[in-house]
């Protein structure tokens, strides 16, 4: 399967996020670079962490290098520029600082290996992606770091690719369970009611919190974050409440606190901006679902594909065929084993 076919002509900015370090993000990235080269797509590329260094700084394992072809646009830092062997033309020096110098946008003049470290904050990532598009990139790829997933937010990138692998746990079922949870979060449905969605978007835009009742009246809740405010939110609910709009993050404790205050949450749908705002693990999520919580998003994440890495740097591996089969059966999106795809296709 060609992953680029899922992207081209549909999405201009795509994030690549991983369930953990060594889940295979860089291998997936290289695969995308290869496909883009075959199809003659001019890519823009950056990373919120680091890419292309020969050795991983956390696990000291070898990392795949990044080889970029002529005309590729890349956003990296001043320090990385000096360590790259490709010849790069500087198009723009941004004013986004990182721990490794300012972010610089370049065009590859002579192909070669490149070290990439891009902007740190989501807002900067978005700006840099837009800038790379304006410099002629057809598709911009944003590589993630470690297990960070917020670049998947639809307010930052239009679509996302999830890398998962054996590194998560020695227990294959646990890897599958955690990946299912993440994919389910990514696939959380937006609220259907257009009027409610409009009201919700207005609240989210103002970074405020509020309750919508059955007649469409909005009552704002005077809090700055839902963290530690579960009891306040709980008290704002009554039998007429139908939706709660939460602008920031949604964590386990907030829902627990709401439960201790009222049962009215059972008739209410909680709306967060998108799935990257949710910080609730697989087991707790199931628990809250059973207790009658309904959680929706204002914007759905376009999760395109899950890529698999059956090898773990800790020195064990899963049978690639079993791993692929289990994931394919359980995930509601296409699955690709980036390490051994050809063999699996037989």
């Amino acid at each position: 399967m060609e992953i680029m076919d899922l992207i081209r002509h549909k999405y201009k900015t795509v994030s690549l996020v991983g369930m953990a370090k060594n889940a295979g993000k860089t291998v997936t990235l290289n695969r995308l670079l290869e496909e883009a080269a075959e199809k003659g797509i001019t890519l823009g590329l950056t990373s919120i962490g680091r890419d292309g260094e020969a050795q991983d700084i956390v696990t000291s394992t070898e990392k795949p290098m990044i080889y970029l072809l002529e005309d590729t646009i890349v956003a990296t830092t001043e320090d990385c520029l000096l360590r790259s062997d490709a010849k790069l033309e500087i198009l723009e020096v941004t004013d986004y600082p990182t721990a490794m110098g300012m972010v610089v946008i370049c065009r590859v003049k002579n192909e070669g290996y490149v070290e990439i470290a891009g902007p740190d904050t989501n807002i900067a990532v978005k700006e840099v992606a837009m800038s790379m598009l304006s410099h002629g990139a057809e598709i911009v790829l944003i590589d993630g770091a470690i297990n960070r997933k917020t670049t998947a937010s639809p307010s930052i990138t239009e679509a996302t690719i999830l890398a998962t692998g054996a590194v998560l746990s020695r227990d294959i079922d646990k890897v599958v369970e955690e990946t299912i949870h993440q994919v389910d979060l990514f696939n959380l449905k937006p609220v259907e009611d257009v009027m409610v969605l409009g009201l919700a978007e207005e609240l989210l835009e103002n970074k405020s919190y509020g309750v919508i009742d059955q007649n469409g009246n909005v009552k704002t809740i005077d809090i700055k974050t839902a963290i530690n405010s579960g009891t306040v939110i709980g008290r704002a609910l009554d039998e007429d409440s139908r939706y709660v709009i939460l602008s920031g993050s949604l964590v386990k404790k907030t829902l627990e606190d709401i439960m201790t205050i009222t049962d009215a949450y059972k008739d209410v749908t909680f709306i967060v901006r998108d799935a990257t705002k949710i910080f609730i693990g697989a087991k707790e999520w199931k628990f809250f679902e059973k207790r009658g919580f309904e959680i929706r998003v204002a914007e759905k994440i376009n999760a395109l594909v899950a890529t698999l890495n059956p090898y773990a740097p800790q020195g064990y591996q899963f049978n690639p065929r079993d791993f692929y089969k289990k994931m394919k059966q359980n995930l509601s999106l296409p699955v690709v084993d980036v390490m051994l795809e050809e063999e699996l296709d037989e």
């Binding site: 919120i48 962490g49 680091r50 700084i57 956390v58 990182t98 721990a99 490794m100 470290a117 740190d120 904050t121 989501n122 807002i123 900067a124 770091a145 470690i146 960070r148 917020t150 937010s153 970074k207 974050t225 963290i227 602008s247 920031g248 993050s249 990257t276 705002k277 910080f279």
Partner: peptide, 28 residues
Amino acid sequence: EAEGIRDKVVLVCGGPRLSHELAKELGY
């Protein structure tokens, strides 16, 4: 990031196992 304040704070980590290089990767 989820709370929308990452770009409003200077975020610093420290400790014997934390290098400046690792900080970049972590998003600090």
